[in-house]
Design a binder for these strands. Structure first.
Length: 365
RNA sequence: GCUGAGGUGGCGGAGCGGUCAAACGCACGAGACUGUAAAUCUCGCGUCCGAAAGGGCUACUCAGGUUCGAAUCCUGACCUCAGCA
């Protein structure tokens, strides 16, 4: 049976879903009411950051990250696997990956180690609706042997994560319907036999879903749909398929056709702050067709040619920005560098993505 | 009217004899951004030819002059600002 819903503490959410990144328990530049305004149904928070910057005591006092934020949508917590890559492997923070976990030094004298077990334990404290196992990110530049090492470690960590998950759930007396989902993550880079092997091994361990991990973009900037297919073809039908960090609107549409039904990405929020808005090529909501090749275009708000433009950014959009303000006003806000520019742009881009999900649900049903 | 300071690209502002089509900033234009240590970063920005490397032309208020060579020195004109009348 193909999954139809993502079950959250606050009710079922129809698939597919796109959860923007609220890495540090906030979607950058907007608050929870803004987020609700965009009809966004869930968010992704991050273990690595919140573990270090928030801590378990606050979570215990508030009863989880959702209550802390007063957000009533779905919540997925990422394991920190990606941060291990971006932070340690990029050399910004000293650290290394061992079989035990990710060892790093936030300052010269301190040492922290994020193990698969700790990641799960903290994610349970977050009280998210889906926990993600810690994985060893396959560097896109890896050769076959290096990729294989990351796959083996990922599988081993996934096994430990699952064990820890079951242990904690038992200890807390969480029955099958009270537990969060647990997601395995496939690695293996562009090597399809490794992807297939990783997927099959993770399925043997048993998860509620599998994620397409690693870096899905090649040197030319093209999306690796081959790996997406390999993962989808080797995953049971009743699993969630999660495109981690995916992606551009057209990539989401294609991955959804391959069976992927969960997505998160920083693009809409980061692009918004950087002055790139997504605009449907349509004059009304009804006219939007996400299966057309060029169903949207980018809009750069802070251009001189818009300084006196009293029209809305998009006629097809019903977000706060498009309903209430003109292109000229948004251009002004960007020009003077007021945070409101980033806020309105973020609200708009998130509404773009939530509309995208609404349209995909219609075509899937 | 007198005295002093000054006039540089769309703007602010360096440069004060050659390495200057002119630092730096702003503005403007183009691009990037994919499980967020990015409200960030990159590039362009006199003009013409060239895909590029590169080359041509016109330029530092205007008019003369000195010099192999001037945004830079000299003379004059015009204008701006400050102080005094």
């Amino acid at each position: 049976m193909t999954k139809k819903f993502f079950k959250s503490k606050n009710g079922n959410i129809s698939l597919p879903i796109f959860f923007p990144d609220a890495t540090r328990a906030v979607v950058r530049s907007i608050d929870t009411s803004d987020l609700e305004e965009t009809k966004t149904q869930g968010i992704l928070v991050n273990t690595f950051h919140l573990w270090q910057e928030l801590g378990g005591d606050v979570l215990k006092k508030f009863g989880g990250i959702g209550k802390f934020m007063d957000f009533k949508g779905g919540i997925i917590s990422d394991s920190g696997g990606f941060q291990v890559m971006s932070v340690i492997k990029s050399g910004n923070v000293k650290g290394k990956i061992t079989d035990e976990g990710a060892v790093f030094h936030p300052t010269k004298k301190t040492k922290k180690i994020l193990t698969p077990e700790k990641s799960i334990e903290f994610q349970i404290k977050l009280e998210s609706d889906m926990v993600v196992v810690l994985d060893d990110f396959t560097d896109p530049k890896s050769n076959y042997d290096e990729a294989k090492v990351s796959v083996e470690r990922t599988i081993s960590w996934a096994r430990r994560s699952k064990d820890e998950f079951l242990k904690i759930c038992d200890r807390k007396g969480l029955g099958k319907n009270e537990r969060p989902y647990i997601l395995g993550v496939t690695q293996g880079g562009k090597y399809q036999d490794l992807r297939e092997y990783c997927t099959k091994e993770l399925v043997k361990i048993g998860f509620d879903g599998l994620g397409y991990g690693g870096w899905p973009i090649d040197e030319k900037g093209d999306f690796d749909f081959e790996s997406a297919k390999t993962i989808a073809n080797n995953t049971p039908e009743d699993y969630f398929l999660y495109g981690l960090g995916v992606g551009k609107p057209e990539e989401i549409v294609k991955c959804n056709e391959l069976g992927f039904n969960v997505f998160d990405c920083v693009l809409p929020t980061r692009d918004a702050r950087h002055g790139r808005l997504y605009v449907y090529d349509a004059i009304s909501m009804e006219e939007i067709d996400v299966h057309n090749p060029n169903f949207y275009k980018f809009y750069s708000p802070d251009k001189e040619r818009y300084f006196k433009d009293d029209s809305p950014v998009s006629d097809a959009c019903d977000c706060l920005l498009c309903k209430r303000y003109s292109k000229a006003y948004l251009a002004h806000l960007f020009r003077i560098g007021d945070f409101t520019a980033g806020r309105l742009a973020t609200i708009h881009n998130l509404r773009f993505y939530s509309i995208l999900m609404e349209k995909l649900r219609l075509t899937n049903s």
